[in-house]
Amino acid sequence: MYYFIINPRSRSGYGAVIWDKIQHELESRGIPYEAYFTLYKKHAARLAHELEDRHHTCTIVVVGGDGTVNEVLNGLTHPARITLGYIPTGSGNDFARGMGIPFDPAEALSLILSSHAVAEMDIGTLKTRYHTRCFGVSAGIGFDAAICHEALASPIKDTLNHLGLGKLTYVGIALRQLFLFKPCQARICLDKKQTLHFPRLYFAAAMNQKYEGGGFQFAPGAKSDDGKLHICVVGNLSKPKILLMLPTAFWGKHIHLKGIHMFSCRQIDIHTDRPLPVHSDGESCGYADSISLSTASEQISVITPG
């Protein structure tokens, strides 16, 4: 039995269109399934929790974007009991990109129904004074989170999604935020051992996957099953240099540039001299001047090409 959690509003309604095709395929092949539709923010978390509580072990298939996957992860109490399938319908799809899952919904469904291959994936944990959130792709503080915050409320995003140009939303917002954002002083502690000081921090991204932000390869060396977070810290750079740096991140070449710092650890604590935007898998977690990021004790099994 497959349990589908569907976000029909992902990519401005694209999720509902894709689900109609998936449902037709499931019924034509006589595949047993149950479908649950998200009706409000964080509903996917509640649905995932109820399925886990009811069935103990089961296969949950997410039809949505990275934010829907994030909600499902946050709804699970014992993720090691769950097998996760994913059919991407979002505009960024960094989770699918990082796990090697096909972007084409028909191919992703075929993989789920035919594959016996699973990959164990770490789950990251973000803690602030007010929130504790899990993440599958990345979490961070600063400039990249500011882009996420604005994109979630952008009236232009729906229009560009309908045109298949959703990524342009992030490009435009990134340019605007780069002009507005003021770097701050930060203290970063790795595994409670090494403390680093940054007089001009733009952002710090804790990566569980290689990609975030719709294909930026901020952590080209990241492995989602090694029990570590791969940290990309951007500081002590001028804004023109950051503008030049961003395109190189699509190929992971930014790591060779001065002002880009890469680390690998199990826990990172970040303290800034003023509250900055915080995100978890692109979802807003408000503002904070102190966050802690680590890997959870349990992994989750994800259906992959093998």
Results as ranks from 00 to 15, higher is better:
Y2N: 03
Y2W: 08
F4P: 03
S10C: 05
I18P: 05
W19N: 10
I22L: 14
I22H: 11
Y33A: 06
A35S: 07
F37N: 08
T38P: 06
L39T: 13
K41G: 09
H43G: 07
A44T: 00
R46G: 13
R46H: 13
L47A: 01
H49S: 13
E50P: 03
H55T: 08
C58N: 07
V61P: 03
V61H: 05
V62D: 08
V63W: 13
G64I: 05
D66C: 00
G67P: 05
T68E: 06
E71C: 07
N74D: 10
T77N: 14
A80H: 12
I82H: 05
L84R: 04
G85H: 05
T89Y: 10
G92R: 03
D94M: 01
F95P: 00
R97M: 06
R97V: 03
M99V: 05
I101M: 04
D104M: 00
P105M: 03
A106E: 11
A108I: 02
L113Q: 15
S115C: 07
A119I: 01
M121W: 01
D122F: 03
G124L: 06
G124K: 04
T125Y: 08
K127W: 00
K127V: 10
Y130I: 00
Y130D: 14
Y130W: 09
H131W: 10
H131G: 10
R133P: 07
R133E: 10
C134H: 13
C134K: 13
V137K: 08
V137P: 08
I147V: 15
C148E: 09
L152M: 12
A153P: 03
P155F: 01
K157Q: 00
K157D: 00
K157F: 07
K157W: 04
D158E: 14
T159E: 15
L160H: 07
G164N: 12
L165R: 13
L168Y: 15
V171W: 12
R176K: 09
F179G: 12
L180Y: 11
F181N: 01
C184P: 12
L190W: 10
L190S: 04
L190M: 14
D191W: 00
K193G: 09
T195D: 15
L196K: 14
A206L: 05
G214E: 01
G215Q: 01
Q217H: 12
Q217P: 03
G221Q: 15
K223T: 13
S224V: 02
D226N: 08
G227F: 03
L229P: 06
C232H: 01
V233D: 12
N236W: 05
L237H: 03
K239Y: 07
L244R: 15
L246Y: 09
P247K: 09
T248N: 09
A249D: 01
G252N: 04
I255P: 09
I260N: 07
I260M: 08
H261N: 15
S264K: 12
C265Q: 02
I270D: 08
I270S: 07
H271A: 14
C285N: 11
C285S: 10
Y287L: 15
S292W: 00
S292F: 02
S297A: 13
Q299M: 06
V302I: 11
I303L: 08
P305H: 07
